[in-house]
Every structure is written in C-alpha cells, then in structure tokens.
C-alpha cells in the first residue's frame, strides 16, 4: 500500500530535481526527497514448531543505527516489542533516527511455517537490515536480525540470513500464563525484573520439563534459528 504512494513521491521528487538541475545526495532517511536507487524484497519465514511471532518491524539503515547491543539494556521501545509484540514505538523511534533509511511494519503475526514479504528501498554507503518480532509464548523473547549487511548485493542477487532468538532481559522467564501474551496474559510492563541486559535466549522449559507453573507445553520449545530471512535486491 505504501509503495505506489512512495513511488509517486519519488517520481515527483526526481522530476523536480531534474527541473532545478540540482542533485540531492542526502542519505539521511528523508526518503521523500532522496531517490532510492536500491529496492529490496524480504521474505521472512517462521521456522519454529509452535511459536507464533508477532508482527515484525523491519528497518533499513546504515551502520550508525543499532537495534540492540548484546549485554546492554534494551530500549523501552524494544521492551515493548519483546514483552508485548508491539512494534510501533520501535518503528517510530527508528523513523526519527537519521541513520534509518526506510521502515516497514508487519501486518500480522507470522505463524509457524508461514511467511510475509516486505519491500524496502533506499541507499547508503553501508546498507544494513534489522528486524525483530516477539515469540508470543515467551516472556520477553524476540527473534531478530541486528544489522545484517546487504549493501553488497548486486541487482537480482539474494542473500539468506537466519535470525536467532534473544531475551530482552526486561522480564523474568516465569512462563506463567498471566505474563504470556500468547496465553492471554499481560504484554508490556515497564517494570524490569530480570537482569536488564539483552542476551541470547536460553529457550523455554515448559510444564513437562521441570517448571510446573509454566503454561507452556513441549510443543512451544524451540532452538535457533527462529526465522529465515531471504533478502533479494530487485533494483
């Protein structure tokens, strides 16, 4: 839905640039006036057995943007995604970041075995893609790519990435129904009752493997990777 509008904007901007004989070379994310000369298609597939992944947020950026840093605290926006599956703050913060070139929000959860396709466009000296979506039957687990380089892709070429599952470190891994959005429980809660730094996720235990109070069953267990991301440069 966004694309025709953007294309129209780009065409107008290009026409204006031609008429004025000026060359706008800004790469600062203001894609209303800079001409995106690279277009990327992302196919994102959920590879888990039984962990739906919340609507993902996808961000095209240069190397100055960082979705998160392992071992450091998650931003509140990332916490909102990791605990509640809400990508809106993450994407609005990204959109106001000068290192971000384009963003797109997933339309719905990606259920196991299914895929969603995204289109992103823009240019920068070092193009990277980041994305994140919550595993909705975890407390604060999210599958993510954190700055995967795609600037080298030739037109028509593809590259495949596999996204690991990370733990936002903002909520203890109780696996209690009341705290799992996938079980009808609470999403985002501003309190931080875990170690408060992002780690690789240790996985879920489930009620059959030593955590009697867990609302999860053995089908919710997962191993890495959780998402396949195929990036194809269209133009």
């Amino acid at each position: 839905m966004r694309i025709p509008l953007k294309l129209a904007t780009v065409m107008i901007a290009a026409a204006m640039a031609f008429l004025q004989g000026c060359n706008d070379d800004s790469n600062n994310g203001d894609d209303a006036i800079s001409l995106p000369d690279k277009q990327f298609q992302l196919d994102v597939t959920n590879l888990t057995h039984n962990q739906a992944i919340s609507a993902v947020g996808v961000i095209l950026h240069d190397s100055a943007y960082q979705l998160f840093t392992l071992g450091e605290a998650a931003t509140v926006a990332l916490e909102e995604l990791a605990e509640g599956g809400d990508n809106s703050a993450l994407l609005s913060e990204a959109n106001s970041n000068g290192a971000v070139i384009d963003t797109v929000a997933g339309t719905a959860m990606i259920v196991p075995g299914s895929s969603e396709r995204f289109m992103l466009g823009g240019n920068a000296s070092a193009l990277e893609v980041s994305l994140a979506g919550m595993l909705v039957n975890t407390n604060d687990g999210f599958a993510a790519l954190n700055g995967a380089a795609i600037g080298h892709l030739e037109r028509g070429a593809s590259v495949t990435f596999h996204a690991k599952v990370f733990d936002a470190g903002s909520e203890g891994n109780s696996e209690a129904a009341a705290e799992l959005p996938g079980q009808g429980g609470e999403g985002f809660n501003a309190a931080r009752n875990d170690r408060d730094f992002v780690t690789v996720h240790p996985g879920v235990l489930s009620m059959v493997d030593g955590l009697a109070t867990s609302a999860l069953d053995q089908s919710h267990r997962f191993d890495n990777p959780a998402l396949k991301v195929v990036v194809t440069r269209l133009q």
């Binding site: 959920n46 590879l47 888990t48 057995h49 039984n50 196991p112 075995g113 059959v208 493997d209 069953d217 053995q218 089908s219 267990r221 997962f222 191993d223 890495n224 990777p225 959780a226």
Partner: peptide
C-alpha cells in the same frame, strides 16, 4: 508417547528431543 500433534507441517527447525 508425547502428544501426537504436529503444529508446523513444513520443514522447520527441530525443537529438540524432550
């Protein structure tokens, strides 16, 4: 026997043996 249900009927990452 564990529950005989298959939640993802495509080729996916194995969740591991229990």
């Amino acid at each position: 026997g564990l529950p005989a249900t298959e939640n993802n009927m495509t080729v996916h990452i194995h969740r591991g043996n229990l």
